[in-house]
């Protein structure tokens, strides 16, 4: 007969099994919506296709390919801002997908005013660009691996009584890698729900959160901004060139 431990094990297994079965079921139905949406896209029914693709989000699920296809639908509709927004979302999941990069760059090339380059050191830009090629989960995995290597190297150095200079040199390599990964991960985590895309064409960023306040700078559809804070219906945003202004929160959409 079952004892209590076996029964607990059975319940836990059952819990995980039903959990994974439910998820598998949701995945199946999501696939169905995906293929239906693709058919609608083929027929040129972009609005219906978008609605069908978005059914995945209604189930709190996401996929890079879904976002990519939504981006294509919006592009075909001529809605550049939302197209770039969805490409950005897809990039978070598929950062090295060549089709996506090509479409994203092409969509960005259609923005009225080209994006402004950020003001920062070239080394930081290079590091940022390098880490942009990875997802948050990938960076986490690499960070974990480097962390384990750092621990092993530190342990070995202590046990083997390596001279201090050599010890510092040997440990510093994985330590720097861990640090770089950690900084990159923190940056990326910090950006979650703070990056947004302007979805309306040519909007005025104000000095203060009032309609009658003076215009500070102009933002064009598809431009990426960072949300700093909220004040009622107003959003304090920072443009990539570090210019700060206030815009109406309906004029942008969070990535």
């Amino acid at each position: 007969m079952f004892n209590i431990d076996q029964f607990k094990l059975f319940l836990i297994s059952l819990f995980f099994l039903t959990g994974s079965m439910c998820f598998a079921q949701e995945e199946k139905s999501s696939e169905y919506h995906f293929y239906r949406a693709n058919l609608l896209y083929e027929k040129g029914n972009y609005d219906e296709a978008i609605a069908e693709y978005k059914k995945l989000n209604e189930k709190s699920l996401e996929s890079g390919n879904f976002y990519y296809n939504i981006g294509n639908c919006y592009f075909k509709k001529g809605d550049l801002g939302k197209s770039i927004l969805n490409y950005e979302k897809a990039k978070k999941i598929l950062p090295r997908d060549k089709d996506l990069i090509a479409n994203y760059e092409y969509a960005k090339s259609n923005i009225e005013i080209k994006s402004i380059e950020p003001k920062s050191l070239w080394i930081i830009k290079e590091v940022d660009n390098f880490f942009e090629q990875f997802t948050i989960d990938e960076i986490t995995k690499v960070l974990f691996i480097f962390y384990i290597i750092l621990l092993i190297v530190t342990g070995v150095c202590i046990v083997l009584r390596i001279p201090t200079v050599k010890k510092v040199m040997v440990i510093s390599v994985p330590a720097i890698l861990v640090l770089c990964n950690f900084i990159s991960l923190s940056k990326r985590v910090d950006q979650i729900n703070k990056e947004a895309i302007v979805i309306e064409n040519k909007i005025e960023a104000k000095f203060e959160p009032f309609e009658k306040a003076a215009t500070h700078f102009i933002l064009y559809e598809g431009v990426k901004v960072t949300i700093l804070s909220l004040n009622g219906n107003w959003c304090k945003i920072k443009r990539i060139d570090n210019k700060i202004g206030w815009i109406n929160k309906d004029q942008l959409s969070i990535i």
Binding site: S30, F34, S60, L61, N65, N69, D99, A102, N103, Y106
Partner: peptide, 16 residues
């Protein structure tokens, strides 16, 4: 000039 075709498979689906 144009955009690459839509993806034909849903790819990996994860929780948001």
């Amino acid at each position: 000039k144009g955009i690459a075709y839509i993806k034909t498979s849903p790819g990996e689906i994860n929780k948001i």
